[in-house]
């Protein structure tokens, strides 16, 4: 399998992938396991995009402290994405505004786009994976 896969990627299929984060970082495991998908995708040299909308934007909010929750604070990992050449991060403006947040509250550089623009961006993707 490993050999086959390598051949295929040398064949150079590059697709536009988008990982869509819609859920809060804690409370369910979705955010953490989406992040694990994102990290694996980096090994495949694809055109990776990450979208944050609805409560998903809390995943990249500054100042997360999970000590009292007894859960691991995995938010520093988002800052490491740059090192994997994953730099296309999009945040929906309406989701920010609805939660009284601004770009300054976020711990990574992102592009803030409108809900309509987000829809158009998604429509242009080859593969959209979400949770």
């Amino acid at each position: 399998m490993g050999e086959d896969m390598e051949e295929e990627y040398e064949g150079g299929i590059v697709k536009k992938f988008m990982f869509v984060n819609r859920k809060a970082p804690y409370g369910t495991i979705y955010a953490l396991e989406v992040l694990e998908m994102v990290l694996i995708s980096a090994a495949f040299d694809q055109d990776v995009h990450i979208a944050f909308l609805d409560d998903g934007i809390y995943q990249i909010k500054k100042g997360q402290d999970t000590k009292e929750l007894g859960m691991k604070n995995f938010s520093p990992t988002y800052r490491a994405l740059e090192g994997y050449d994953i730099e296309k991060l999009f945040v929906e403006r309406e989701s920010l505004e609805e939660r009284g947040l601004t770009e300054d509250d976020l711990l990574v550089p992102v592009e803030v786009i409108s809900r309509a623009e987000m829809g158009a961006l998604m429509a242009g993707m080859d593969v959209v994976l979400t949770a």
Partner: peptide, 9 residues
């Protein structure tokens, strides 16, 4: 998880 990304490709 690579199997998922590969399926996407």
């Amino acid at each position: 998880l690579g199997q998922l990304i590969e399926a996407g490709i």
